[in-house]
């Protein structure tokens, strides 16, 4: 087994009464580009700040590069580079000064070896005062500072949210470059295509807990493939989300039922069969959907009886109506699927 660059077990973080992290188990192997996905407020940034020793865990264990992130923060920082999600620079410093200062504070020599190349690639004017930079330009400065000198671990918190598509491709090239060198990357992101393109492994966090983890292939296997064909309506098959429009049928199939479904389709002479493997987006939306349900349930409890009716109306049919209405008895409810898969993945 490869070395684990990041490993947490049962990590807890409470802010007053809010449980931000709730038994988080995150593992990132040496050399992996690890996608860290989750809806807003799920605890991504909190996790990262605990890993960097800015916040102190309320419970559980965390190791980064084999060290304790709270006690050995400075030793970890010597080998890690970090790009925060919301970069605020010193208004009086120029971009170039900010880059060199961060480089030196990280314990490297400035100008860093790749600084000039990156400034060129990211098309940055380093002589402007930081106050006059746009969000994207501020992000570029943090990215250049992170990538200009070598690190063993790169932690990036939604680093491309302000970049244009051209710059995003520069960013992706940099990730590949450091990954080829053998560095480890933890990439928190909302941009699923980016994660699909860059990441070898993925963890999905929800409510301060990892609900899915593994390689992209593993995760895809665990999820339903969408099957569409022209032919007779399905009978007695373990399908979910079935929709029948005349001859056109669409449904989703769990991986383990695929042989059975394919045999049936062959037997019945189904035509124009397409099988679409699950995208990360579908995988992710599944959790967003759950999140929405969890949220509304919480809101309901919090508001008490007074608004119970309204909330019930608001999220009832739309959020989970399709499954509730269409799913045959054989298909497990999506919450069960998640649970099972979560355990598998871990």
């Amino acid at each position: 087994m490869a070395d684990r660059v990041i490993e947490t077990s049962g990590l807890d973080k409470r802010f007053g009464r809010v449980q931000a992290l709730d038994g988080l188990d995150l593992v990132v192997e040496q050399g992996a580009v690890h996608g860290f996905l989750g809806p807003n407020g799920a605890g991504k940034s909190t996790t990262i700040r605990v890993l960097l020793g800015m916040l102190r865990a309320s419970g559980g264990e965390a190791r980064v590069l084999g060290m304790d992130p709270w006690r050995d923060a400075v030793a970890i920082h010597r080998r890690a580079a970090y790009v925060p999600g919301d970069v605020t620079l010193w208004p009086g410093l120029t971009g170039g000064e900010a880059i060199d200062t961060i480089t030196r504070l990280r314990g490297h020599r400035a100008p860093a070896s790749d600084r000039a190349r990156l400034i060129e690639a990211f098309d940055l004017d380093p002589r402007r005062r930081s106050k006059t930079y746009s969000k994207g330009n501020r992000q570029k400065i943090a990215l250049i500072a992170a990538f200009a000198s070598e690190a063993d671990l790169y932690i990036l918190d939604e680093p491309t949210s302000g970049l244009d598509p051209l710059m995003e491709s520069v960013f992706q090239a940099e990730i590949r470059r450091v990954a080829d060198r053998g560095a480890t990357v933890l990439l928190s992101s909302h941009i699923l295509s980016e994660v699909e393109r860059l990441c070898s492994t993925v963890s999905i966090i929800r409510d301060g807990r990892i609900v899915e983890a593994g390689t992209l292939e593993q995760l895809r296997h665990l999820h339903h493939t969408v099957v569409a064909y022209r032919g007779p309506a399905p009978e007695g098959l373990p399908l979910a989300d079935v929709s029948v429009d005349g001859e056109h049928v669409r449904a989703s199939v769990a991986a383990e039922h695929m042989p059975e479904v394919l045999r049936w389709l062959g037997d019945r002479g189904a035509q124009a069969v397409t099988l679409t493997p699950p995208s990360l987006e579908e995988l992710f939306l599944r959790h967003y959907g759950d999140e929405a349900r969890v949220d509304s349930a919480r809101a309901e409890r919090a508001k008490g009886q007074r608004h119970a009716d309204e909330t019930g109306l608001a999220d009832g049919p739309d959020a989970d109506g399709s499954e509730a209405a269409d799913a045959p008895a054989v298909a497990p409810s999506s919450a069960d699927v998640d649970d099972v898969h979560g355990r598998h993945a871990r």
């Binding site: 120029t94 170039g96 000064e97 060199d100 200062t101 030196r104 504070l105 002589r127 005062r129 106050k131």
Partner: peptide, 24 residues
């Protein structure tokens, strides 16, 4: 107005003896 400044940071600016960022 904010004028354009130096494109590079001096060594003094990044000076941090013993983990104290005195330069900054």
């Amino acid at each position: 107005a904010e004028r354009r400044g130096r494109g590079a940071g001096t060594a003094l600016l990044g000076w941090h003896p013993g983990g104290a960022p005195l330069g900054l």
